[in-house]
């Protein structure tokens, strides 16, 4: 099931200088910490002049769609999914 959330969240990231990548490692949402084991896809979206980074990340049981707003460096959890039909 896919659910739209659109809530600000805390994210622990690592910057990999060799690959030149920012990698989300942990997500804290509704008081619970979720480990991230996989980055499915990362792409950029322009909203007017504002640049947003969209990270599709997951672990074995839940997938998150995260948005990093480069204007204010805020993270937003846009969607969650358990990979099952609605």
């Amino acid at each position: 099931m896919n659910e739209t959330i659109n809530e600000k969240i805390s994210v622990v990231t690592v910057y990999d200088q060799v690959q030149g990548l920012v990698i989300p490692k942990k997500v804290k949402w509704q008081g619970r910490v979720y480990e991230i084991t996989k980055i499915g896809y990362h792409h950029k979206v322009k909203e007017g002049n504002k640049l947003l980074h969209i990270f599709a990340v997951s672990n074995d049981s839940i997938a998150f769609r995260l948005r990093l707003d480069t204007d204010n460096l805020h993270w937003t959890l846009e969607e969650i999914s358990d990979g099952l039909a609605d």
Partner: peptide, 21 residues
Amino acid sequence: TAEQQANPLLRDKPLCVAAYN
């Protein structure tokens, strides 16, 4: 395939991208 790439939990499953749900 792009959706399955972004979300590994959707892989190996029958999935359709449709105009609306």
